[in-house]
Design a protein around this nucleic acid. Structure first.
Lengths: 155, 155
DNA sequence: TAAGTGAGTTCTAAATCGGAACCCTTGGTT
DNA sequence: AACCAAGGGTTCCGATTTAGAACTCACTTA
């Protein structure tokens, strides 16, 4: 298989590798979390995250290249843009939601309240669960067969 | 809010930050992917991932510290251990599964087959979907209210 | 005795990151 | 005109982290 360089990940046949080539970076998911909280501007990301401006600019550029964020002009003089989630970016929400569920269960915060997920209409508290879209049976390590690549073994 | 150093993330009140303090690293999720494929030994991880031995040792140590992997002796002379997922680690599968689903949809591989998720019993092909555990309604950006911290605003 | 296995550790050079300062355009103040 | 602030970056330098390769240690097998 040879050595795997991080930037080759996009061409890997493994979807985990391809997914991580987009969101596998330390700060990228934090940026996306802020996006889902409605943040759109460079300085707002920077202030909330405490990330260096240099790294932030780089991550926003990559997310735009990957089609997760869209950079759109919101005023002309001087030109200013904001970053917005595309459909592809919005489709990442289930991952974030699943991560929140895991962290609230297995890394609970000592005393502070946690982010709470609510239904948009009713405001009811929701609890994420990953199921099969057809049978609606929960998918866990007990119900799933070991993950395998369907690609032919290398020898 | 001050600057956020990566290692302070564990004490953040945001579950996304706390989750990422465990699995937010480039290689960590790749290691976990291999774990879910049944890999348990140092050299096997190393050969499959093409990660440097140094970094691999570091990531395995961190995952053990975080209670995601367990290092257990499987022979005495010389002492050898293998790395196994704990309950906490097994609970990460839904995240991996959701990531696979996203990547297969939005970053499809040109020609090669992808990893396929199957039911352990029937072998039927399953398709992950994140729903509310009570109502079984899908959770997406259309059905969820914007994520908010329930912590009091800082001023 | 030599070679091999498994699990690391050590070393050096290259890449990335953090922190801070600087730049540019435009609008508003004094 | 001179100064300042907002917004969105870029540049520079020193500190970390990573990649790549070699080396170690404790056995086991040929």
């Amino acid at each position: 298989m040879g050595v795997m360089r991080w930037n080759d990940l996009k061409e890997e046949s493994c979807p985990v590798a391809r997914g991580l080539s987009v969101i596998g970076d330390r700060w990228t998911m934090m940026v996306l979390r802020d996006c889902f909280q409605g943040i759109r501007r460079f300085d707002d990301f920077q202030k909330r995250l405490g990330i260096t401006r240099h790294v932030l600019a780089d991550r926003l550029r990559k997310l735009e290249e990957d089609g997760v964020l869209e950079r759109r002009l919101y005023q002309d003089r001087p030109p200013r843009h904001e970053y917005r989630l595309t459909e592809k970016g919005l489709a990442l929400l289930p991952i974030l939601v699943t991560l929140i569920q895991w962290a609230n269960t297995w890394e609970p915060h000592p005393e502070q309240d946690d982010k709470i997920l609510r239904d948009r209409e009713t405001g009811a508290h929701v609890e994420p669960l990953v199921v099969d879209s057809e049978t609606r049976q929960p998918l866990t390590h007990r119900t799933l067969r070991r993950i395998e690549s369907s690609a032919a073994p290398k020898a």
